[in-house]
Design a protein around this nucleic acid. Sequence first.
DNA 1: CACATTATATTGGATGTCCGATATATATAA
DNA 2: TTATATATATCGGACATCCAATATAATGTG
Lengths: 90, 90
Amino acid sequence: MRGLLGFLVLFLLSKKPMHGQEIANELAKRRGEKPSPGTIYPALKSLKDLGFLSEDKEGKTITYKLTSKGEKALEIAKKRFTRTFLGVIK
Amino acid sequence: MRGLLGFLVLFLLSKKPMHGQEIANELAKRRGEKPSPGTIYPALKSLKDLGFLSEDKEGKTITYKLTSKGEKALEIAKKRFTRTFLGVIK
DNA sequence: CACATTATATTGGATGTCCGATATATATAA
DNA sequence: TTATATATATCGGACATCCAATATAATGTG
């Protein structure tokens, strides 16, 4: 998986399915800067290629959601993340 | 500042001053892998060059601790980190 | 002293991460 | 149809991140 960006995307999609621009806007809120198209779409492609996302295309928008494989990967990544940053967030 | 490694090092040193090997061992607990010398020492040097750390050399061991500038940088980084990963850690 | 151990330091490079620029496709408006 | 806006996609490359290998220095042990 890609680094923390991929992790965040998985996390966001676990809350609710979204298309690329929605994800980018949500990332903008959290990070302060909206990721460029050259960042978000390759990240989505990478997660899709790993089998973590499925697509639902309607017109020009593609809604992504987690596959069960993606859910498992997220749980594992969450555990590692939590252990690594234990105590950092109170 | 370096990425999350530098952030973690600042956080660990805010708990208590440590020397390089202690930091590496603490990182090993959290991440599962001990960072190589080529990772930890450049990271410490970088943080020192930024004025975030001060050194206390005794024999061959160098104990690092946060400067007040480092404490401020840590607080800022913590806020950003918390906002970015809000909800990821329950 | 000779040897091993521990801590620190540096360098070169492999890989990862991400962006800017650009392109394609669909939808909407005039 | 032409123009505009929106969403997705790709490519090249800049930069960051990190490691393996190696080196230096101090300490401990026989």
